[in-house]
Amino acid sequence: MHATSSSVDRSARVDSSDRSLRWRVVDIVIAAVLGVATGLIFWFWNTIGYLWFETADAVTPGFGGIAVGIWLLGGVLGGLIIRKPGAALLVELIGAIVSALIGNIWGPTTIYSGIVQGLGAELVFAAFFYRRFGIVVAALAGIGAGVGAWIFEFFTGNIEKSAVFNLLYLGSIVVSGALLAGVLGWFLVRALAATGALSRFAVGREARREV
């Protein structure tokens, strides 16, 4: 597993000379579309995932964080597909806005969450200078988004809870972010590229060249 992921990482490194970081119209529209799609996924997950979240919390303190990863997908998808500065933040933010506008229990806090989660993922992509988009970077971006979520929730309420709860919550949110957002997101992008839908993006062209 380790050997394959690192080799994939290397092949996914982008030659920075043949691309610009300027947003094209298609980048903007696809960011919006990805945002809406993830917003709908969030909205669905708001029911299933939230029940899971609260049930897990009722049985064990903090382990509800395992369900959080799906809510962090937007940033990972945006960063991996669009590969431009701000993409992770924008997609996660739009997803959160859509989820809030369709109607969920968190109302506008969803949007604040979206911002911090998107920023978490964004910082990870920025740390790699928007040049590496392998599975490891994806997992790190998922973790970044998770940590963002954890910090936000800490200061808006969880600070009232015990340290044990918060540490367990951090641990489970990191695992969930890495797996349900990062790794899942990476495979999702690869599957998406395989359908030819991403032909106007570098990630799509790379996938098609392999075939």
Partner: peptide, 24 residues
Amino acid sequence: FFSMAFVLLVFAVRRGSKLATAME
């Protein structure tokens, strides 16, 4: 749910690409 969400994403991205072209 996951399989449909995926296809939704495929549709979304393709339709979005077309929309971007139409806008340009």
